[in-house]
Design a binder for these strands. Structure first.
Lengths: 136, 136
DNA sequence: AGGATGTTGACAACGGTAACCATCACCCCG
DNA sequence: CGGGGTGATGGTTACCGTTGTCAACATCCT
C-alpha cells in the first residue's frame, strides 16, 4: 500500500478539512485540472471551500513538489498529483488523459546542452502532446 | 540572400508602419521578450504604436509560424523571431537570452514514447531554462 | 483621386490569480 | 477536556496580462 498523501499538510503545517479535500480529490483524478475546475468539483461534492483556499493549497502542494503544474496554451495553470520522482508527461490534447513518462537520455541531453552554454541552475520542461487511442 | 521578413504582412494582408516596426524590432532582438517589453521598446524608439496593435501583430506572426511563443513561469507570453527549422530553446530566466538548440535523439524519443502509448498526431515542447553566465 | 476595406489605438472589459483582513478552526497546553 | 494563541479560511478587492470594442484612420485597388 502507498503512503496516504491525502492528509498532507504542507503549507505552514495544520491539517484542515479543506486541505484534505483538495488532496483527496487530486488523488482520485488522473488528469490535469485547473484550479477553478477543482474548486467547482469540490463544491459539486458539497465541500464548503473558497476559491482562494483552493489556489493557496494548490500552490503549496506545488511548492512542496507534491503535484505537477503545467500551463495550457492559454496560460492557465493545470494541476495533477504525480509520482515524486522526476518524470514528464504524455498528454492527450482532447481528453487530458495523461501518462507519466521517463527519458534518462533526455535529462542528460538537457544538462549537457546547458553546461556547454554556460547556463547554471538548470531546469527543463518536456511535455509530449498527442491524441490518445480513445480520442483518435 | 534571405527573404526580407521585416515587411511581412501576415494578418489580413496590408503592410503598415506599425507591423513593419514590430517585425524589424524582432529581427534585431535575439531574446524572448514579452509583448509589453516590445511595446515599451518601440515607444522608446519613437514609434507611435498602441499596445493593442503590438499584441495583435505578435499573435498574427505567431499564427503564421514566423515567431515562437513561450510561457514564463508566471504565465506571461514571450516572443522571439526564430529560424524556421524545428528546434528548441535554452533560455535565461533572468535576461531572456536564448540559444536555439537541437536534439535529434529527443525528437526520436518523443515519437517513440508516443507511439508506444498509442498516441497519434504527436507534438512536443522541450525548453531548457537556466541562468546564463552573465546573469549568474 | 476616391472609396471600400482592412487597421489602429484609447479604453473598457475579462479571466485567472493573488493580496487583504476580519473571522474562524486547529491543536497545544495546562 | 476546555481556553487560547496561531495559523487558515474565504468573501472581496486588486492586479495584470490579454482581448474586445468601435470610431477614426491608413492602405491600396481602380
Amino acid at each position: 500500500m502507498t503512503t496516504d498523501r491525502s492528509s498532507a499538510t504542507v503549507p505552514g503545517r495544520r491539517s484542515t478539512r479543506q486541505r484534505t479535500a483538495v488532496a483527496q480529490l487530486l488523488d482520485q483524478l488522473d488528469d490535469f485540472r485547473s484550479a477553478q475546475e477543482l474548486h467547482e468539483e469540490l463544491r459539486k461534492r458539497g465541500e464548503g471551500i473558497g476559491l482562494t483556499t483552493v489556489y493557496r493549497t494548490l500552490q503549496s502542494l506545488a511548492d512542496a513538489g507534491e503535484i505537477d503544474v503545467l500551463r495550457t496554451d492559454s496560460g492557465e495553470a493545470i494541476y495533477r498529483r504525480c509520482s515524486s520522482h522526476h518524470h514528464h508527461h504524455l498528454v492527450c490534447r482532447s481528453c487530458g488523459h495523461t501518462v507519466e513518462v521517463e527519458g534518462p537520455a533526455v535529462e542528460r541531453w538537457a544538462d549537457r546542452i546547458a553546461a556547454e552554454n554556460g547556463f547554471s541552475q538548470v531546469s527543463h520542461t518536456v511535455e509530449i502532446f498527442g491524441t490518445c487511442e480513445r480520442c483518435a
